[in-house]
Nucleic acid binder design. Structure first.
Lengths: 269, 269
DNA sequence: TGAATAGTGTCTTTCAGACAATATGGA
DNA sequence: TCCATATTGTCTGAAAGACACTATTCA
């Protein structure tokens, strides 16, 4: 069903270039941009689309988020999530990856990425109208940013945000980070998102500690194990075992194909 | 979600790239739009932001979606969800309301509206790069579109989509509608979204039938009642009663302030 | 009176949560 | 040996689901 729809909209239509003398049409006509002259360059509203990345990892027992220190006005000295203006020939996830590499110096790709929310307040950037399509991304390795002029990225513990020792966030990026954290917590409840936070192969103890860090709880190991193993497609067992420090060696697993948790892993009641 | 992954694989062809303005800077500089000259008119990528509305109601026992017949190319004769180009001075929900009024002739406001997803495939509109920020909206009254030249809207049963008697959808709007339906189903599970589908005051039978229609199931009246009344903030009791046809008069309720269902109303197992 | 819907009571199954018990490594 | 972690076993309480039963109206 969805396949047909996508196929249907792939047509080799030629774009009609604009030769409008009038700079802008009325809002009413704008609402019906069907004509041959629709969407032409001189007729576009002044809206800029950027992609902002709410990028998380687990590092030494803490949930961390990738922020970039701003060096120019406005909001110089404050910290922002990596962002980039969307190019006409790229999709959101590509722009998100580009933003993380170019602005924060992070070279590793996301383990997982998905849409987060659109931030559309009219005054969120003082320069012009900027609509931000934020994405939620996670990695299994909170790698240090590579060197270079643009490598001003840093992983901040989310617990430090809002404290005197923590970063001061630019624009509405505190909102973006907060929304990302809450979505991340919800995704752990309903999907196998947590597997993207640990390196393969992983033990169920490592996976459980990812839940502990993101949710700020301590899940019961026995019940967690039963729940994960009872969910088809959550993890794939391997033959290996690993000795972390002390204690009995743990079985090693790989990420499953992508599971929907039915019923979910419960959080709070 | 998985949707994003699929979309990321679809690279736009060279057609879009060939339309780039010669005035544009490199992607690397674009990634750091901090300078005083950032976001100026001559430096903006050719990306148009539209708002598309996945707008649902329950009408005579069926879930219906509001579609508009296209009268111009491309995709003339096919049906699309109401959409509008985002104006620089409005937020998404305002543009969504404007689209429904101007394009479909629907005058009643949404009972509830929230963000749905961003559709960002590079070739989703043959004319130019269009990024669609889709919203999910519902109403309690599937009112007939008002007359007028622009009132080409029609409520289609979602069950008719994909059948010979149903509408053929333009662009990737089948994807937008499908995503909206699935999100609506999920929202009924976790929130009090269903109360927005019924007119106040309502009986628990009417509320339950909204679940039945959206989910395509028949919930057990006794268990449903217990569940709803046990969830704080879901519905507010009133003193009134109503006799629908035959049968015992039912208590009337109003919408609660907006509840998060913990635990949710279960769907499928 | 019978049909239809609303509302109450209760039983069974399932599952989360707690916790005891065992397994297996390192210090 | 003790200690720490993994893994298995078992019990309990809460909630979903099924269904019998009562209540109240209209035809």
């Amino acid at each position: 069903m969805a396949k047909d729809g996508k196929k249907a909209d792939r047509r080799p239509g030629g774009r009609v270039k604009a030769q409008k003398s009038v700079k802008k049409r009325s809002a009413e006509v704008r609402a019906v941009p069907d004509g041959p002259g629709g969407y032409v360059a001189d007729d576009r509203p002044d809206v800029v689309v950027v992609v902002d990345v709410s990028y998380f990892a687990v590092d030494r027992g803490a949930l961390v988020v990738l922020l970039v220190e701003r060096t120019r006005q406005p909001d110089a000295g404050r910290w922002a999530v990596p962002g980039a203006v969307l190019e006409p020939d790229e999709v959101l996830t590509d722009a998100a990856a580009r933003a993380v590499v170019a602005r924060a110096g992070i070279l590793e790709p996301f383990t997982r990425v998905e849409q987060l929310a659109v931030f559309d307040a009219g005054d969120r950037d003082p320069r012009t109208r900027v609509v931000s399509t934020a994405v939620l991304a996670v990695t299994s390795t909170a790698a240090a940013p590579a060197g270079g002029a643009l490598a001003s990225g840093r992983w901040w513990p989310v617990g430090a945000i809002g404290t005197p020792a923590g970063p001061s966030l630019a624009f509405d990026h505190l909102d973006i980070v907060t929304t990302g954290i809450e979505r991340l917590r919800a995704r752990l409840e309903l999907t196998d998102f947590a597997t993207a936070l640990v390196e393969e192969p992983f033990t169920l103890g490592e996976l459980r500690r990812a839940y502990d860090v993101v949710w700020g709880v301590e899940l019961e190991p026995a019940n967690f194990r039963r729940k994960v193993l009872a969910t088809p497609g959550f993890v794939v067992p391997t033959a290996g075992k690993r000795i972390v420090g002390t204690g009995r060696p743990a079985d090693l697993y790989l990420r499953g194909g992508g599971a929907v948790l039915h019923p979910p892993i419960p959080r709070q009641r």
